[in-house]
Each structure stands twice: as structure tokens, then as C-alpha cells.
Write a protein that binds this DNA or RNA. Sequence first.
DNA 1: AGAATATATGAATACATGCTCATACATCAA
DNA 2: TTGATGTATGAGCATGTATTCATATATTCT
Lengths: 126, 126
Amino acid sequence: MSMYSYILPMTKLDSCDVPLVNEEAVSEVLGAQADDVDVARLAETFQMLASPSRLRIVEALAGRELCVCDLAAVVGISASAVSHHLRQLRQMRIVQFRRSGRMAYYRLDDEHIAALFRTGLDHVRE
Amino acid sequence: MSMYSYILPMTKLDSCDVPLVNEEAVSEVLGAQADDVDVARLAETFQMLASPSRLRIVEALAGRELCVCDLAAVVGISASAVSHHLRQLRQMRIVQFRRSGRMAYYRLDDEHIAALFRTGLDHVRE
DNA sequence: AGAATATATGAATACATGCTCATACATCAA
DNA sequence: TTGATGTATGAGCATGTATTCATATATTCT
């Protein structure tokens, strides 16, 4: 037992056997944490953006809609691979699509997505 | 050598054997694409945010600095695991740190990071 | 109806990632 | 100096991911 083991309520605070240095700040953080489910979904959302191919798709769909074969031409991978990516992007509500005959036209779900792309690009370019 | 190796000018337009539907839009997209290196770094940056543990770290560091052991308490994983995450976050300039004795105090690199977290959370919550 | 086309998806393979454990390093305390 | 402490890191295992290939589904054309 560490000499730094304070007597504290049973919270996540006890899951670490290393002494807390800034106990007040840690409590404040734990009290303001987002919901576990939201954070899990957020991680999945960023995972969707963690692929050059999918980022090219998002970049291409910023401001216009495109069909699967056009996206394949833009990204430089097969239409099959694009379709797999699009399914994931749909599941995380990164993109929406509409059908027209045998074509499927994809677009970004909302302005958050383009904002994430731009902010991220600003960060890596700075 | 693939049977699909046509002799054509070397542009991405030819990398797809499916007909282009909106050739003009595709050309416009290809002309405005971000640099490959930037997109690769952007994907790595989002990869850093594609983990609940690392998101908890980012959330905790929004507006304050914390040491490794405090972060371990916040995230609920070992200090070792946190340290591995922090190294990756440092490499992608998501966090900075300062040393003080044997302590290391981490903080977010810049405002882009907190903005990505907030925008992403707004998206998953909508 | 039958052929061609645009997209979707399951399986398989190759590669990447997150955690733990063991251990190293650097600093502080006695 | 010796031992304790905070952080860092390499190896290894279990799990996850991206792509390709084969095939399915649905729509259009003849």
C-alpha cells in the first residue's frame, strides 16, 4: 500500500496506485466528463476520419455530392473499397446519400464534418 | 503486370475502371486536393483522437495541465498505458509537456485540439 | 426476358493498435 | 550512496482494420 493512498470516496480516483498530485483538478475533471457512450461514439467518429482514403472522400464531398464511381476516381481505389468505406461513414453519420436509379449520390451529413476536416488540416499545417 | 495497365497519362482519373458520371466535378476536386503528406498527417492526427482513453486525456487537459499519474486516475488505466498514449499524442503535437523534477505536466498543444473535441462531441450528440 | 451496369457485402489476408508486464532512467529523500 | 518514486519504453498478445476478390442485388437497356 502506497503512503500516498488517500482515503477518498470510491470513484475512478482509486483505480490508480500512483499518488494524485492535483487532487482538486482531478475531481473537477471527473465531475465534468462527457458520457461514456458519447465518448465511445466520438472515438468511432474520429476513427472514420483516421484514414487517408476516407479523408479524401470527405474532402471530395465538401460542397458537392458525388456517386461511388466518381469517388473511386478521386480517391484512387476500387469502387468496392469505396463502398466499404461509405458504409462505415454512413453508420457514423459522416455522410448521407440518395438513390437515383442504380446510382447512389453521397454528401456530407452536416457542417460539423467539414469543420472537423478544416480544423484538423489547419492543425497539421501550422 | 495487370491486364488493366492502359497506356495513358499518369493522372488519378485513370485509376478507376468504372465510368465517370460527373467528370467536371471530379476534375475540380482533384485540382483542389490537399497535399498527400498533409492528408497522411491529418489521418494520423484523427487516429490519435480515435480512442476513448486518449479522448479522456484530451478532455481532461482542456483548460488545465495535469501530470501522468493524475491522467491515469482520470482515465482509469495504468500510468504506463497513459505514458504510451502521451508519447503518441506528443508525436502528433496533440499535447505539449513541461518537466518539473521527476514530474511531467501535460497540456493541449493549441486551441485546434479542444475545438476538434467539442465539434466532434456536438456531432455525436445531435 | 436477358445482358450490362452501379453499388453493396461476406470472406480472407496482411497489417496496425492498445493494453499489460517487465524494466530502464532520472530525480528526490534519508 | 541507497532506496523509493514518477515517468518512459520495448516486447508480446489479443483484437481491430483496409484492402482485394468473388459474388449478390437492383436497375436500365435492348
